[in-house]
């Protein structure tokens, strides 16, 4: 199904998508998207949505299954509390990507904003993944309780830092992989930097291979720089704040 979204209010657009998906339509191509919010939000079917243009905030919020491809930049709140599905953004993305994300994957070609991966979760085999090709801003992986977050910094120039300040602050679960290492000044108090072991490498390679396939990068080049991993120091970073 092809939809011309120019001038269309988000409520109408999302209703069309929801109703058609319910009726069995499995593929949507949205043209001239310009800031419409909540595309793909709360949809429980494995449909495909291709977005030509810049979607609005909360793309794929509470989403549970669809594959969304954005052929432009994306805004704030992508995959907010998302449960399952996949999002591929051929550009940069805004703030709070993957807030409270519970499952599924996000691949972003370029940079991400503030608080990427905040409060991601996981349970057993349900592990959310975010891979960003560029750099991130402050509070990346804040309060992370699970999941995998990969930052590549592929096209960053010179001494440009790969993240902002307070990386992994409040982290108490999950793992962050960073290509080319990270300046310790950027770290939150609750994380430590470790080297990758074989298991890490295998996991990383799997997600990077998918990333490179989506965006046409060379896997060998992506793997050419050494990675570091960030893990929480304690599973109870705030356990000693209180007198019982």
């Amino acid at each position: 199904m092809k939809i011309d979204c120019s001038g269309m209010y988000y409520r109408k657009l999302n209703k069309i998508i929801r109703d058609a998906a319910e009726a069995g339509e499995s593929e949507f191509i949205l043209d001239h998207v310009n800031g419409q919010r909540y595309i793909g939000s709360g949809i429980n079917k494995k449909i495909k949505i291709t977005i030509n243009g810049v979607p609005g905030n909360d793309l794929a919020m509470f989403m549970n299954g669809p594959l969304i491809t954005v052929n432009a930049n994306a805004q704030d709140g992508i995959a907010n509390t998302m449960n399952a599905g996949e999002i591929i953004v051929h550009g940069d993305a805004g703030d709070v990507i993957g807030y409270g994300m519970r499952g599924g994957k996000i691949y972003i070609k370029g940079n991400v904003g503030y608080r990427t991966g905040i409060h991601m979760k996981e349970y057993k085999k349900q592990v959310p993944v975010i891979v960003a090709g560029g750099v991130a801003c402050d509070f990346c992986a804040e309060y992370m309780a699970g999941g995998i977050l990969v930052l590549l910094g592929l096209e960053k120039e010179g001494d440009m830092p790969i993240t902002g300040d307070y990386l992994g602050t409040g982290m108490h679960g999950g793992v962050v992989y960073i290509r080319g290492g990270v300046d310790e000044n950027m770290l939150g108090k609750e994380v430590s930097v470790l080297e990758l072991d074989e298991k890490d490498m295998k996991l990383l390679k799997k997600h990077l291979a998918e990333f490179c396939e989506h965006f046409g990068f060379d896997l060998e080049e992506a793997m050419s720089k050494p990675f570091v991993k960030l893990l929480p120091v304690s599973s109870r970073p705030y356990g000693n704040l209180y007198a019982y």
Binding site: A145, G146, G173, P237
Partner: peptide, 10 residues
């Protein structure tokens, strides 16, 4: 809650 056993739920 989808968080590790024994961690504080923040």
């Amino acid at each position: 809650r989808m968080i590790p056993v024994g961690t504080d739920a923040i």
